[in-house]
Design a protein around this nucleic acid. Sequence first.
DNA 1: GATAAATAAGATGCTTTTTGTCTTATATCC
DNA 2: GGATATAAGACAAAAAGCATCTTATTTATC
Lengths: 144, 144
Amino acid sequence: MRLTRAGEYGVRCILYLAACPRGAVVKKKEVALNMEIPDQFLSKIAQQLAVAGIVEIIQGSKGGLRLARDAKDVSLLDVVEAITGEIFLNDCVSDPNSCRNQPTCSVHRVWSKARMQLRETLGLATFAGLVEEGHCLQKKDDRA
Amino acid sequence: MRLTRAGEYGVRCILYLAACPRGAVVKKKEVALNMEIPDQFLSKIAQQLAVAGIVEIIQGSKGGLRLARDAKDVSLLDVVEAITGEIFLNDCVSDPNSCRNQPTCSVHRVWSKARMQLRETLGLATFAGLVEEGHCLQKKDDRA
DNA sequence: GATAAATAAGATGCTTTTTGTCTTATATCC
DNA sequence: GGATATAAGACAAAAAGCATCTTATTTATC
């Protein structure tokens, strides 16, 4: 019941990009270095974020990463789910076969509620907000 | 970000016990059979539940499992955490070293909130309530 | 006390997921 | 065409999850 390391890296990546000047292309290596993400692993993560429409990957010698949309339109939920898939908490909710009688199952209902709350809380946290409030892996040369 | 199978089994086990007459000793095999839990695996799970003070394990020829406290005093949270350990959602919260500046970290705060909500929701769901409302792995011979 | 019926406890093994790395290919700028 | 990026697929080590096997221990009953 934990966020995977890949998920955490994804969050760090977007956190970094969101703190950069808007629209700037940032080298993958720079992100990896500053946010303490294994360089090659970040490639995989970035690709997932690109598929989800969160970042844009620019190839070539001046290539790198760029937010595909404004930081205020990217939530923690977006990033986490882009990496780890949709959050479900328990199988009962995601796999109909594992629960014989879903809508009337009391246990099921509790998990469903918990899931909704979790997704809502993560969904309300935008990266614009997160950057503004400050975080613990702040860029070293950040002088906002 | 999912409940493990062991956690699910733990919930099923308590669900079954909570539906039995109060104070009754139920054979492990009966629980395993009715709730579709691998028999030996249930032993391990029951032991964890016993350590947590949720069930009492009675040895010997008339042995089995029994709730150690009233079903209304056992929550989904109790059972899940007895099996999988305390819920944290992300490492940032549980491992101080992974987050340099916890209290002022915006990301950290969101996860903390999400964690609190999740634990509260699961904590409010008692097994007395869950049994009363009905669930999807109802005992076959249940005629309440 | 012996026997039967239960659980305990430790070792072991298989599978899946996670977390990467290595290598080769491809794209872009100059 | 060379330099500098990322892409993509294969591969592999480590950890977690999910059990099972075996041997021991406990308790009720005869």
